[in-house]
Computed example of a mutant assay.
Amino acid sequence: MSVGYTLMTEQAGPTDLVRHAAMAERAGFDFEVMSDHYFPWLDEQGHSPNAWSVLGAVTQATERVELMTFVTCPTMRYHPAVVAQQAATVQLLSGNRFTLGVGAGENLNEHVVGRGWPPANVRHELLAEAVQIIAGLFDGGYLDYAGKHFRVDSAKLWDLPEIRVPIAVAVSGEQSVRAFAPLADAMIAVEPKPELCKGWDELHDGDSPKVGQLPVCWDSDRKAAVRRAHEQFRWFGGGWKVNAELPGPPAFDAATQFVTEEDVAAAIPCGPDLDPIVDAAKPFWEAGFTHLALVQIGGRHQEEFLDVAERRLLPALREAGGR
């Protein structure tokens, strides 16, 4: 399993994100993923720069690591034709190191354009049409498209990379696996469910990247780590069905007012001990994931974490994962 680093736009500004990207590459991470938000989950996180602008800078600050959006919603804030253009440009700038990760989105980020927030089944319809449009533009030539939700009129990407941009889609259950595996090159999920990998592999002959994500909060002081994880990541406890519906940071604050530090510490590895991180990663490779991106919680706490990752954590994860 390849080990990645998350450039979390909700907890760091653009300059720091680019600096962290270069540091993570030097530390030895295999790939880097970047969230694409308009809002942070909670006010305490305090950031949300434009992911695509930052990605452009990251392509020039790094040389080796694979890059991915984790994830972009190509249906409301962005029209899928614009996402295709952005992805092709990043692929060219990065020297063919980019994968376009897409998902159905959250109310938190998409409501800002004033189109309301549709139910889950409509969001999946939107995403399926968007992926078809993006893939059609990656084919080259002019594209006309008339779907239930989107229209494209004589669109064309004038700067296409030699290597087609892979498309990865976020899934959560059997229905979304069946819907998107035929349309995508790779799978994204945040829970280590073996049935997701099995279902995806059945439609890809087992030869497809499957990317997971694991939040951690490393700190030399465990109590400080638990406090920080609770402060900035208690939103995680709501589950994605809830998280997708809430409209802004105040709603996440209210929804998680009864989540305790103990609740967060039970779900997220916190503190200086690396064994809990390795233990939390194991279910992903046991489930069949090929890639796992770590999230170090706390925008101001990346340098120490990356040093520990280079010296101790990455070797421990690779040894445990058989690399």
Rank of each mutant, 00 (worst) to 15 (best):
V3Q: 01
G4Y: 04
M8Q: 11
H20F: 13
A24I: 10
F29D: 06
F31R: 08
E32V: 11
V33K: 04
F39Y: 09
W52H: 10
Q60F: 03
A61F: 05
T62F: 03
R64V: 10
T69Y: 09
V71W: 01
P74I: 02
T75V: 02
Y78G: 02
H79S: 12
Q85W: 02
A87T: 00
A87I: 01
A88G: 11
T89I: 03
N96C: 12
R97F: 08
G101E: 12
H111D: 12
H111Q: 15
G116K: 06
P119M: 12
R123G: 05
R123M: 05
E125N: 01
L126Q: 14
L127N: 00
A130P: 00
I134C: 05
A135C: 04
F138Q: 03
D139E: 15
G140K: 05
L143T: 03
G147D: 08
V152T: 06
D153G: 06
W158S: 15
P166D: 02
A168E: 12
S172E: 10
S172H: 12
A181M: 14
A181W: 05
A181P: 05
P182K: 14
L183Q: 06
A184V: 08
K193P: 02
K198I: 13
W200K: 05
L203F: 02
L203M: 11
D207F: 06
K210C: 06
V211A: 05
Q213P: 00
L214N: 00
L214H: 02
W218M: 03
D221P: 06
A224K: 08
R228C: 08
E231C: 09
F233H: 15
R234T: 11
W235V: 12
G248L: 08
P250D: 15
V259L: 15
V264L: 12
P269A: 10
P269L: 02
G271W: 04
D273G: 07
D275V: 13
A281M: 04
P283M: 08
F284N: 01
F284K: 06
F289Q: 07
H291W: 11
R300V: 10
E303H: 15
L306G: 04
V308N: 09
V308Y: 11
E310F: 04
A316L: 09
R318T: 09
